[in-house]
Amino acid sequence: MSRAALLVLADGRFPAGGHAHSGGAEAAVAAGRVTDAASLADFCRGRLHTTGLTAAALAAAAALGVDPLELDAAADARTPSAALRTAARKLGRQLMRAARATWPSAELDALAAARPRGAHQPVVLGLTARAAALGPTDAAYCAAYETLSGPATATVRLLSLDPFDATAVLARLAPDVDRIADQATDAARRVLDHGPDALPAASAPLLEISAEAHGGWPVRLFAS
């Protein structure tokens, strides 16, 4: 395993389309729920412990070699919002393109062929980690961290938030990311014995509700 491969995959500049998505932050900012660094931190913590945990476990399970199509179906069941399913598949397809160019693998090719319109992004992320010879915990870290970095970057643009404050939010949440990555990896190992039902299904009602509202906005900066 190359630790540097983890840096490549987790780099915010990895060209996989994430820059156009706010992870729900645009809707939360518009609703007045995120207004400053403190509310951004609270938003990020909530997202990390809900959809972040679910995404990290899906990624870890894919990295462990669990059938990605089974995981894709499990991701569908854990993403009730149609708008968020669309966003997850769009991002999965974009990540797939970058992944196949950077770490070519037969498993990535097979998933791309089976889901030409895109598999859920965390599943593709886990399979990408596997192609890069990374482990399940690495995949979980990437997914968990992305849960935070997307909203933090978007909030800098949306609120003109001080970028140092936004980065400090990410740093303070590092211990939470560690815990989520561990929990997600444990859950992913249980999937090997018990199937995808062993995956966490933590959800966030406000993220789901506001994703549907955001999907209908005529003018917005971010795709989700």
């Binding site: 060209p15 156009a20 769009k90 974009q94 393109r97 795709a223």
Partner: peptide, 15 residues
Amino acid sequence: TGACPHTAIRDDISA
């Protein structure tokens, strides 16, 4: 483009 049109045509062209 997530408020960054140049990113979408140059740095991350996936979309």
